[in-house]
Design a protein around this nucleic acid. Structure first.
Length: 503
RNA sequence: GGCCUCGUCGUCCAGCGGUUAGGACACAGCCCUUUCAAGGCUGAGACCGGAGUUCGAUUCUCCGCGGGGCUACCA
């Protein structure tokens, strides 16, 4: 299968029963990309035919995910289009009508078997080591019997009559020809007793009505595709092209679900990932351009995407590489944009990953602008601003006695280093980074220490950490007064620890 | 259990009958270096197994094994 050259109509049709996860959103992504590439339409349709599992939060999350990833749609809820409504619960009459039509044409029948009876049937089959399947008993119910049941308030469903022999095949765009024996299928429900259609019926009617050309969906649908083909036949409509994409598995190799930790797109937003990086990374899960290119702006992905390069095998989702890629995207980012993205995270309460609560909000954007160049290439996540930059905002750095001495330094030596550093800090003729570096290197030479030995205690004294941005840029940004204060504090900490040795 | 499907480094992806089996992440070492990153170099690391087909199989076929999916009045 080569790529379509004429415009496609593709849809993302999630059910609002849970927050869409990476695997789910990837199919949306593939749809979107293909629509862009062929100048077609990307349709969003909400499949809410399971009323008991409906979750409005999930529905909100669906649209939020799409928006965050920049997957705008051409038709859908809140957007409109010529084939609406785009919410299945609002299309109910169509489904009921079609189900009745199928009964009249002899392709389907009413069934009054109760859930209890179905359950008992399965129990019996299981006990007899038979595969559980519906036995077609409803085929033999007369209209009168059904009418009686209906009056008695029994649940009535509509089932499709599946031929007991023969086979059905279709050509999947990524897997090739797939064949199923009809005898493996039982008569399945197309209209539930609450008069809502099952997915099988509903999506076919909608896809046909909406002119969908390519059904791009997860691998898990392969097994029910023969059912869908049967419905198409019964309805006399032409099936679309099927593109079943391999599933994305969690670390334990099972289909991705909530229990795999962070798996939804929105969670990655919370963790500080960029939509561009997530977009790029997810596309590469199950697709590749054929060469070794990995970092690609979305325009390039749109240009190079092709169905026939979608992978056959399921991929395991591993966020480690995503983190790396996010770092690449951050490094490629404009400073002002980066600041805008990071600011909201830093302004959150400390408990939610923000700067210490003592730091006044809103945060001084100009000051942050001075700081960002010092850490820009070190960041992998937007959320890292707080922990990386806190000491610029908060004077309470509390260097620990263990951290202050550099490599191969004892307390006395550390004290000596800090005392000398303090004097120079007070006396330095300029606080420009380049100037500071020159002066401190001279100082190191004078007190016969390696530059690193002198710099290390200063760094810890000033930042409270053993690793930080380049020292002299840091000192310069913090300013002379506060640096003096911090070195003095470190000396106090150090001296008190020496005079009262702990065990 | 039945049916469908997948099987290349730990992970993602190349390979589409002949390659020293390639790249990326992660890992290790070295270089750079005031720490941490970034960057550079090097290293370790894979064709699930067995039969065929073929002059030649990672690549094609079959069987086995292993993984996954489905087996609902859920999608």
């Amino acid at each position: 299968m080569t790529n379509p050259t004429s415009p496609v109509r593709v849809r993302y049709a999630p059910s609002p029963t849970g927050i869409p996860h990476i695997g789910n959103i990837r199919t949306a992504l593939f749809c979107w990309v293909l629509a862009q590439q062929t100048d077609g339409q990307f349709i969003v349709r909400i499949e809410d035919t399971d009323q008991s599992r409906y979750d409005s939060e999930a529905e909100k999350a669906i649209f939020e995910s799409l928006e965050w990833l920049g997957l705008g749609f051409d038709e859908g809820p809140g957007k409109g289009g010529d084939h609406g409504p785009y919410v299945q619960s609002q299309r109910q009459p169509t489904y009921i009508e079609a189900a009745h039509r199928l009964v009249e044409s002899g392709h389907a029948y009413y069934d009054d078997t109760t859930p209890e009876q179905l359950h008992a049937l399965r129990e019996r089959q299981r006990a007899a080591k038979q595969p559980p399947r519906y036995d077609g008993r409803g085929r033999h119910r007369s209209p009168e019997e059904i009418e009686e049941s209906r009056k008695a308030g029994l649940p009535i469903t509509v089932r499709l009559k599946v031929p007991d022999h023969g086979s059905v095949s279709f050509v999947d765009s990524v897997r090739g020809k797939i064949t199923f024996e009809l005898k493996e299928l039982d008569d399945f429900v197309i209209l539930k007793s609450d008069e809502m259609p099952t997915y099988h019926l509903a999506h076919i009617l909608d896809d046909a009505a909406m002119g969908v050309t390519h059904v791009i969906r997860g691998d898990e649908w392969i097994s029910s595709t023969p059912r869908h083909l049967l419905i198409h036949q019964a309805l006399g409509i032409e099936p679309p092209e099927y593109v079943h994409v391999p599933l994305i598995l969690g670390k334990d190799k099972a289909k991705l679900s909530k229990r795999h930790g962070a798996t939804s797109a929105l969670e990655y937003r919370e963790l500080g990932f960029l939509p561009g990086a997530v977009f790029n990374f997810i596309c590469l899960l199950g697709w590749s351009p054929g060469d070794d290119t990995e970092v690609m702006p979305r325009e390039e992905i749109v240009r190079r995407f092709s169905i026939d390069r979608i992978n056959d095998s399921p991929a395991t989702f591993d966020a480690e590489k995503l983190e790396w890629m996010n770092g690449v995207y951050i490094r490629n980012m404009d400073e002002d944009d980066l600041i805008s993205e990071m600011l909201p995270f830093m302004e959150r309460p400390k408990a939610e990953g923000g700067l210490p609560d003592s730091v006044t909000r809103p945060i001084d954007r100009d000051y942050l602008k001075r700081l960002i160049p010092l850490v820009h290439e070190r960041l992998k996540l937007l959320t890292e601003g707080s922990e990386t930059l806190d000491f610029f905002f908060d004077d309470n750095v509390n260097p620990s006695v263990e951290d202050l001495p550099g490599r191969k330094m004892d307390e006395a030596m550390t004290v000596q280093a800090l005392e000398a550093a303090l004097d120079l800090c007070k006396d330095a003729s300029s606080f420009e980074p380049e100037h500071l570096e020159v002066e401190y290197r001279v100082l190191a030479h004078k007190i016969e220490m390696k530059p690193g030995q002198l710099f290390s205690p200063i760094r810890v004294a000033i930042t409270g950490k053993t690793f930080a941005p380049p020292l002299f840029d840091t000192m310069s940004a913090i300013g002379r007064e506060r640096c003096v204060e911090r070195i003095e504090n470190a000396l106090i900490t150090l001296r008190s620890a020496v005079s009262t040795p702990t065990d």
